[in-house]
């Protein structure tokens, strides 16, 4: 059991971590580096001479910061291996309850992971470009953790619960963090062009969705091979 859990999770974390990093280098990090031009003041968007917000579009690509990008790759491997271990622990619990995990169902597990860890928290705390001013970090981390936990529990109830009560409980759990509300400031401080912030947010989510689906697929493929 231990070997099955850790082997599935490590292979899945490796595959999804590398994929996530490559997709981030292609689609997300260039936007992030462009955002830093506004964070540092190298570019200014909201100070046109005639009061019109304008600035040149176009980033600096990946620039030549190899060490920084290696750090991004390493931390993606760590984060996705962590996600994989929790996901595969879920496989093991499901199997104990008599639910077989197949590569096909692994796709759904991965999508559910994306919804719980990325999409639901993004509904309260959107992915942020560097330089975004936001409220207290501890408060936001606490809300993020609450949102991930309640969404995952709600999705678990939808998948494995029985009856109307389970469904009602799931709806309450999934809505709860959004009714409580994510911590926000009462002032807007954005310095980057809204177009850039929006593209960064949607691209981050799309890259995460692809990475989570691959995470679920690879983890479930290895898991089902080892299942007697």
């Amino acid at each position: 059991m231990t070997r099955q859990i850790f082997a599935s999770a490590l292979f899945a974390g490796l595959a999804a971590g590398v994929l996530a990093a490559l997709l981030q280098f292609a689609f997300v990090v260039p936007l992030l580096l462009e955002g830093e031009l506004f964070e540092t003041g190298a570019r200014v968007h909201f100070a046109g001479a005639d009061g019109v917000p304008q600035s040149v579009a176009g980033g600096v690509g990946l620039s030549a910061e190899l060490g920084r990008h290696l750090g991004t790759l390493a931390m993606n491997l760590i984060a996705y291996t962590g996600f994989a271990l929790v996901l595969v622990a879920g496989f093991a619990l499901a199997q104990r309850a008599g639910h077989r995990v197949t590569p096909r169902s692994g796709l759904v597990w991965g999508l559910a992971g994306f919804v719980a860890v990325q999409l639901a928290p993004a509904a309260g705390l959107p992915p942020e470009l560097p330089g975004t001013t936001a409220t207290d970090l501890g408060l936001r981390q606490g809300w993020w953790a609450l949102c991930v936990a309640t969404t995952a529990a709600g999705l678990g109830l939808i998948a494995f619960g029985r009856g109307a009560l389970a469904l009602a409980g799931a709806v309450v759990l999934i809505l709860l963090p959004h009714v409580v509300g994510a911590p926000h400031l009462d002032t807007y401080f954005g310095i980057a062009p809204p177009e850039l912030s929006a593209l960064f947010a949607t691209r981050s989510l799309a890259v995460a969705a692809a990475s989570w689906v691959v995470l679920g697929l690879v983890a479930a493929t290895f898991w089902s091979r080892e299942t007697p």
């Binding site: 999770a9 996530a20 750090g71 962590g82 929790v86 990325q118 993020w144 981050s204």
Partner: peptide
């Protein structure tokens, strides 16, 4: 798994923060 996610996404240690910076933004950890 939770420990690894905490290290990658939540640790306030500044060395961790610097290495993890771009990944944290991309994964939308606060």
């Amino acid at each position: 798994g939770l420990f690894l996610v905490f290290a990658a996404g939540f640790s306030h240690a500044s060395a961790m923060h610097d290495v993890a910076h771009d990944q944290r933004h991309a994964i939308a950890f606060p």
